[in-house]
Amino acid sequence: MAELLETLLSWFHVVREPVGGVLLVVGGLLAIVGAVGLLRFPDIYTRLHATSVTDTGAATLMIVGMILLSPTGWVALKLVFIWVFMFLANPTASHAIANAAYTAGMEPKIGPSGDTGEADR
């Protein structure tokens, strides 16, 4: 049992750096995808949809990658805190924006849009 744990731990130390790096890069790509969605979608609500998920998702992936790459335990702990606060605050901010937009009367754009559609207002 102890040897199994030891081999697992040694494997972990071997794969730690590449996996962390890959997670970082994938998180970065997800961030670009979200930003492209923010640019190209036609309406405030679709833009919200694009960014809220990809933002928190990219942040999670990058933070997990950085935890795997972190030199000390304290840095990993602080990264966990960053993740917890972002997980709380980011979706709440998206909710607040959607709520404000809806009660201000922004209508979602229904129907096919052109190539680079802009919102009506």
């Binding site: 998180g27 961030a31 979200g34 930003a35 923010l38 405030i44 833009r47 919200l48 960014t51 933002d55 928190t56 990219a58 942040a59 990058m62 960053i82 972002m86 980011n90 901010a93 998206s94 924006i97 404000a100 937009a101 201000a104 922004m106 802009e118 919102a119 207002r121």
Partner: peptide
């Protein structure tokens, strides 16, 4: 074009700054 697009952009910008 609207205020909410800009607020959303600044919010996303803040998250990217953290990262």
């Amino acid at each position: 074009p609207s205020l909410y697009d800009r607020v959303l952009a600044v919010n996303v910008f803040g998250t990217k700054t953290v990262l």
